[in-house]
Structure formats: structure tokens, C-alpha cells
């Protein structure tokens, strides 16, 4: 293998602001967001694409950012937990607050991002739909009950105020 791997120049919009950076090809999207952009709301949990703590939106769809290269996201539009609410909190964040959909909080950013994407695809889910829809996100406190309640509540509130 060659000693020096050429960097790749990538440009993407993160939470509405666009920047270009040179990165090593092997840079993971989650590293890029945390270390280059300084957006540490996105967590590294299992680092094996099981737990979903690193979930962000890539062109509005939930993705595990520990299992995507930053170079793959070149040209994409990324939303992290920091960029979710336009002014104040997103309805899903509000619902996690009022339903106490968290215990230690480590999985929360990923849960919220996964829920936002899930609700965009399933605006009127049943409880079972929510549980299946969040199967890619693990809560190490096993606090799923209130998380499911929060997502159901968010679905209701988003119907009233679209």
C-alpha cells in the first residue's frame, strides 16, 4: 500500500450550513460530524451499527453515521440533533421531554433522529409500528416504554400542527 493516501475534498450541508473539507477517505461520517464540525450531540455507542446512537438524517432519511464514510455523504444534506428544531424544539423533542422518554440520555439523540425519520414515513403509527420502527436503536437503560409513548405522542401532535 502507498504511504500517503490522497485526501478527498468533500462538501456537504450540515444543519443548513455548507462547508468543504479535505478528509482521509476512511473518515466515518460520525467522526467528521463530531471532530470536524464539532457537533457532539451525535453519539458513538456500539460503533458496530447495532445501537443507533449515531443516527443522523442524510437527505431526510435516518442513517447510522458510524457505518457511512464522510466521502459517501459528499453533496448530501445532513441533519443532526443540533439542527432539528427550526426555532426551539422539534415536536419529537417536545414529546420526549413531556413523556420523559429518556433515562441516562445517551441513546436519546439517536432515538429522536430515528423517530423523526420513522414518523415522516409512517405519520399514523400503532404502538407495534413504533416498536418495529425503532428496532435499530438500543436503550442501554432499557427505558423503551416512555420512548414509545413519546413517539406516539409526537405523531399525534404533528397531526394537529403539521
Amino acid at each position: 500500500m502507498s504511504g500517503m493516501i490522497p485526501a478527498v475534498l468533500i462538501s456537504m450541508a450540515v444543519n443548513g450550513s455548507t462547508q468543504a473539507h479535505e478528509v482521509e477517505p476512511r473518515t466515518l461520517l460520525v467522526q467528521f460530524l463530531r471532530d470536524v464540525w464539532g457537533l457532539t450531540g451525535t453519539k458513538v455507542g456500539c460503533d458496530t451499527s447495532s445501537c443507533g446512537a449515531c443516527t443522523v438524517l442524510v437527505d431526510s432519511e435516518s442513517v447510522k453515521s458510524c457505518t457511512m464514510l464522510a466521502a459517501q455523504a459528499d453533496g448530501a444534506s445532513i441533519t443532526t440533533i443540533e439542527g432539528l428544531g427550526d426555532a426551539g424544539w422539534h415536536p419529537v423533542q417536545n414529546a420526549f421531554h413531556t413523556e420523559h422518554g429518556l433515562q441516562c440520555g445517551f441513546c436519546t439523540a439517536g432515538m429522536v433522529m430515528a423517530a423523526v425519520s420513522f414518523l415522516a414515513e409512517n405519520p399514523d403509527p400503532t404502538e407495534r409500528d413504533v416498536r418495529l420502527g425503532l428496532e435499530g436503536n438500543l436503550c442501554r437503560c432499557t427505558g423503551y416504554h416512555n420512548i414509545v409513548k413519546a413517539v406516539l405522542k409526537a405523531a399525534e401532535s404533528m397531526k394537529v400542527t403539521p
Partner: peptide, 9 residues
Amino acid sequence: VGDNQVRHR
């Protein structure tokens, strides 16, 4: 297959 995040990619 996998979960929503995996199926998106």
C-alpha cells in the same frame, strides 16, 4: 433486513 437505518442505505 436489518432496521430502518440499514434499509435506507
